[in-house]
Amino acid sequence: MRVLFTAFFFLFSAAALAETKPVEVKITWKGDYTHNSSKHWSKDNLYDSGFSKNFKNGAPEEFGEVQKDGELNAFIYSPKDSKGPVPFVILLHGCDGLGTLAKEWGRHVADVLNSQGVGVLVLDSYTTRYVDNSCGLPDLHWGRRRADDAYSALDYVIEKKLGREVYLMGYSNGGTTALVSMTTQEADHPHHFAGAFAVAPGCSPSLQHSALYTRPIVVFMGDQDDANNPKWCEELTKKKRSVPVQMIEYQGADHGFPENAPTREVHGWHLSYNSAAEKDMMQTIISAIRTKKFVKGVELR
């Protein structure tokens, strides 16, 4: 029965895909918070410069440019016939930016969630900064930089009365950003997320293991991920926390499990789609949004 329901659910979502039309908007970036600094990026300040009051902060991916203010591109997918604020998810791309594959994944996530009455805002952190990608060591820097991107989008959704109970979801570096966004260091924002879904994030011990989180988190990861170490995420999850932090680890899945694309090698990482893991992840997210129930610990699936 569960198999039949799952098949029907995703066939319905696929059928609705053609009807999903995003509204493109510009979001004013906000970074003037006490947790941020005016220090520019330097080789001696690789990651702390991620907490910046500048839209562009002189990172190599920005060709050293510094810019105080800026805007971000975003695409809003609203449930059909929705009236008034609905549950919302802000979706963050990975280190390669919002290219063709990331856009297709964003549309798919929006389609599945829209069919369940959940709105989606797909946020583009790189185009208006003229950044091609942030893959590699600066990835940690950008996980911090993009937290204020996420909160700028949250402010937009709240101020436009589009959403209520807004969640943050990110893939790869977007997943790292989701983790950073839930820390006490980001608590000085006027609005807060209801929780976060971090897909294949980097759980670097230097950034995450001592972090104090303010909202529930679910980490989704494949045990064969060779881009971000799943063992680090397991250790992060097992630490005693004041809020629920859960890791769902898919057996036989790698870093590419959420994106429906051919098997490939990118930046030296093995990426392949895992349909069962991706569908289970989306069902788990829908259930968490509906029930508002989050649990702790590592679960193998």
Results as ranks from 00 to 15, higher is better:
L11T: 14
A16I: 08
E19T: 10
V23N: 12
K26Y: 11
G31R: 00
Y33H: 15
T34Y: 13
K39W: 04
H40K: 14
S49V: 03
S52R: 02
S52E: 07
K53Y: 08
N54M: 12
N57P: 02
N57A: 09
P60T: 09
E62D: 10
F63K: 15
F63H: 13
D69H: 12
E71A: 12
N73A: 09
I76K: 02
C95M: 06
T100F: 14
G106I: 00
H108D: 12
V109E: 04
N114D: 11
N114R: 04
Q116A: 15
Y126D: 00
N133M: 11
N133E: 13
P138W: 04
R144D: 00
R145H: 13
R146T: 05
D148P: 00
A150D: 01
Y151G: 03
S152K: 03
L154V: 07
L154N: 03
L154F: 05
D155G: 08
I158Q: 09
K161H: 15
Y171A: 01
G174T: 02
Q185S: 12
H189Y: 03
H189Q: 13
F193Y: 06
A194W: 05
A198R: 01
P205Y: 06
L207A: 05
V219F: 02
M221H: 09
D223F: 01
Q224M: 14
D225V: 03
N229L: 06
P230I: 06
W232V: 08
K239C: 09
K240H: 09
R241W: 12
V243R: 04
V245S: 00
E265S: 13
V266L: 15
V266Y: 13
V266M: 14
H267C: 13
G268H: 11
L271R: 07
S272M: 10
Y273F: 14
D280I: 06
M281K: 04
M282G: 00
V298Y: 08
L300P: 08
